[in-house]
């Protein structure tokens, strides 16, 4: 059986993975020693992965961020944390399954974990609405953040959404208000917070979990004001021009770091998070423990003041025709 590559640039990698699997199969069936051949193939695979993943263009980067085999929030819940207790519902209208949240434990400490949740098949995606929250999702998230504040626990959010859901009910029930309130309340939350973009950081739906003391991005994650397709449709009048839009938007993790928006890029294993879940879990665990350690004992007032200073400095402008100021 051969695996199907999900992305065009993965084809050669999947070919070699196939060959390795077949060889292993053959060897175990006939009791042959194929270690030399395997070593060669594994070497080839490593080189090819490095080459491919170190040279992704921005639109390919977007495809990796959306890769259907990438770990999602609940995968990190079981891979990085322990002692999970899911907390459901916004106490106003309903339980939104596009955002999950609850208590977890990391390194012995309790944390409020909140993240977007995508589905892996159609059934699960219908339940999760493809990771696109309704207002109830943001309101639940805020409810959990306030609980964390009340009990003096830090907040960790995992961001992975195409964006807010452009639907009837979402508008009717005030998704703009729900997002806006999260932005303001996260800005003044008196407890340490970290957001980690694990896949797609799509616009306002992402930012609604993203106003935190630290902003981390996985290496192949993206963060953008609009999808490349949406941007291309509006500015180029053709969604086909998404490659150009993806490049123009500067949405990769290294772009975000350079623009001073991301505080840190968390490395992924060779071939991306989807190629090695355990590897990415180790990486995320290390980054979260270290970052939490750095801010966990800060006095809440100072934490909030620094958060204000951080967000209020973002942007690039010129005063009265002078040279641009701010970060650029």
């Amino acid at each position: 059986m051969s695996a199907t590559p999900h992305l065009a640039f993965e084809r050669d990698i999947v070919d070699i993975e196939d060959q390795i699997a077949k060889l292993r199969n053959l060897a175990s069936k006939h009791g042959l020693d194929v270690s030399d051949e395997l070593r060669v193939l594994n070497g080839k695979l490593e080189v090819l992965r490095d080459q491919t993943y170190n040279n992704l263009d921005p639109m390919e980067q977007v495809q990796v961020a959306r890769h259907p085999l990438r770990p999602y929030t609940l995968d990190y819940v079981s891979g990085v944390f322990t002692d999970w207790f899911e907390l459901k519902g916004d106490r106003r209208y309903r339980q939104d399954e596009a955002i999950v949240g609850g208590w977890v434990r990391l390194n012995g400490e309790s944390i409020m974990l909140i993240g977007h949740q995508k589905g892996r098949d159609m059934k699960e995606n219908l339940r999760r609405n493809f990771g696109m929250p309704h207002p109830e999702g943001y309101r639940k998230a805020l409810r959990l953040m306030k609980l964390a504040e009340k009990f003096g626990r830090p907040v960790v959010t995992l961001i992975d959404t195409p964006g807010a859901y452009p639907g009837f009910g979402a508008e009717e029930r005030g998704q703009a208000e729900a997002i806006a309130t999260n932005l303001r309340e996260m800005a003044r939350l008196r407890t340490p917070s970290i957001s980690l973009v694990i896949g797609e950081g799509g616009s306002g739906g992402a930012l609604a979990l993203g106003v935190t003391d630290r902003i981390l991005l996985l290496e192949h994650a993206i963060y953008s004001v609009i999808s490349p397709e949406g941007c291309a449709a509006i500015l180029w009048r053709s969604a086909e021009r998404r490659h150009e839009a993806a490049r123009a938007l500067r949405l990769t993790s290294s772009d975000l770091l350079r623009l001073g928006i991301a505080d840190e890029v968390v490395p992924e294993p060779p071939g991306g998070a989807h190629a090695d879940w355990e590897g990415v879990m180790r990486s995320v665990r290390e980054a979260l423990i270290r970052n939490l350690g750095e801010i966990a004992n800060e006095e809440p007032g100072r934490l909030v003041a620094r958060r204000w200073a951080k967000y209020e400095s973002l942007g690039a402008w010129a005063e009265d025709g002078a040279e641009p100021e701010g970060r650029s």
């Binding site: 963060y223 004001v225 123009a248 204000w308 973002l314 690039a316």
Partner: peptide, 15 residues
């Protein structure tokens, strides 16, 4: 202005 424009939402809300 890409992610900078997105972050203006956070900036104005912080104020």
């Amino acid at each position: 202005e890409g992610a900078f424009s997105l972050m203006q939402m956070a900036k104005t809300s912080a104020v």
